[in-house]
Design a protein around this nucleic acid. Structure first.
Lengths: 205, 205
DNA sequence: TGCAGTCCTTTTACTAGTAAAACACCTGTT
DNA sequence: AACAGGTGTTTTACTAGTAAAAGGACTGCA
């Protein structure tokens, strides 16, 4: 997903890829005492380290949150490839994707809410994208504070050519999981997301 | 999510919190035509929008990747709270946590690999943390290029007091899912992470 | 009409990250 | 001994985000 979604991170986790709870994902530890038959991931290695030095703490949350963060970090890094070819950062593509999928003009504020970005960040991205001829702006004739943004033909063509590439790439990235696992994972993440959005899904500047 | 951080992007996809493949999570759409009984999350809304304007594309990957990104973004925002109280950013806490859980001195390069950060970023964080008296550095006596870092007593105490708070907080955040769902989610994310680390888990810095 | 309060967007000042270059130093080879 | 090449870390120059304030404009009420 890139288009338009939500939010940011910046930065590595580590925004490059961050990990949860000081769970800073572990280094590429070789071998591994994985639970069942599966290979051990870096988060599992970190959890084992914590158990060794602090056997008293409950590392349960790390196994989900650490992995979510680490997956997001790796995916972002990976996804940069197709977008970068098109000369776009993910946040820029999110703006374009938001305009494309809604199918109508949006104000900067609406774009900020759609993409879970700050208004200031959207201002900067729109400046860039406008200069490159991918979006156009038009003032509201009732309320002169308000601007309306839409894709230019070039912008729309760019989204329409990049999006399928991006999805194809993502499909490949996920192909290690079979269909059942994918839909189960999607469902569980959806449930988690509903919880998180209810609890934390608030403001952005 | 929002915090400089991390930011990066969390983004929604968008950097605040980013999402994947143009799936930019949708805006807080009210109501919703959720599939089964569950409430609809923002990513589901985005997927519906894409279907409306581009019925031909396979939005499957967005349902996983978009949600992973959006969850990561929201979690980062949320997790900022306990850490911020301690005056730490997540990347800083990752450095401290890495030193704590390994239980021995580490070089800057090792810390960078453990936390999936660039060497330059680690240099900056160590400078901060050293100035605050949370970590100490010592030169290697064989190889004068190398530094060895360890937690001070204050640093260790800080980690040991913040970590349980953080985990408690995370436990609360995840409490919307029951135990079976949590362990299933952890297992599926672990599998995905193994795939991603095999495919993409490479260089940084 | 005038003005207080609020809203939408941009600007400002600053922070933290990155990539690439620079430094300093080690090692193996001749 | 000297040096080529490689490694560990820091520095430099730059980018993109944030928070907070500013700028400009609308609305409702006196």
């Amino acid at each position: 997903m890139t288009a338009g979604n939500g939010r940011a991170a910046a930065p590595g986790d580590d925004t490059g890829g961050r990990t949860a709870a000081g769970a800073a994902t572990g280094q590429p530890v070789a071998g591994g005492v994985a639970g069942r038959g599966g290979a051990s991931d870096t988060v599992a290695a970190v959890v084992r380290q914590w158990h060794a030095v602090r056997p008293d703490i409950d590392t349960g949350p790390m196994e989900i949150i650490g992995r979510v963060n680490r997956c997001a970090a790796l995916l972002q890094q990976a996804e940069d490839a197709p977008l970068r070819r098109a000369g776009l950062t993910r946040p820029e593509f999110d703006v374009l994707g938001t305009l494309r999928r809604t199918g109508h003009e949006l104000t900067p504020g609406e774009i900020a809410r759609e993409t879970f970005s700050s208004g200031a960040a959207v201002t900067k991205r729109l400046k860039q994208l406008t200069e490159r001829g991918l979006v156009e702006r038009r003032g509201d004739d009732r309320d002169r504070r308000v601007a309306h943004l839409r894709l230019t033909e070039a912008g729309r063509d760019l989204v329409d050519s990049v999006l399928p590439e991006q999805l194809l790439y993502e499909t490949a990235v996920l192909s290690g999981l079979d269909d059942r696992e994918q839909s189960e994972l999607a469902a569980l993440l959806g449930e988690l997301l509903v919880q998180l959005e209810g609890r934390l899904g608030a403001p952005r500047g």
